[in-house]
Amino acid sequence: MNWGLPMTDRRKDLDDAALERLFSAARGSAPPPDAFMARLVGDALGELEAQQGARLSASRRTPARQPLWARLGDWILRGAVPTGLAASAVAGLWLGGWAETAGYFSEASVAASPLAQELSYRFPELAGLLGGY
């Protein structure tokens, strides 16, 4: 087979030593041009900056995950206010029911109390204030 080159007599083939000298000549090629090497380094640094920029934007978009103890503290604080209000309401209802059942006051005694009278007297005035009259 001749790969597009002139057919040669088999007896005139190069020997291994001659072929090795050709390979050796090919190994002694000129070093890469400086401008080419500078271009490669420029590519590398440009890509590095692009990757760092992408990482920075991604970290800004996604808030850092807090540690477990901090998340637990947040959860307790967020639940404290509604839990406290609910507990106070339940306790007030329970105390009121208990006091009425135990006979400490009645509907009539509450209606006749000075506080109830004061509230009924003041309520229209308060309502007017709240309504803007």
């Binding site: 040669t8 088999r10 050709l22």
Partner: peptide, 14 residues
Amino acid sequence: LKSALGGMRDELGF
């Protein structure tokens, strides 16, 4: 390669 370059012995200094 040896076959293809055999005809160029003179030019290649071999």
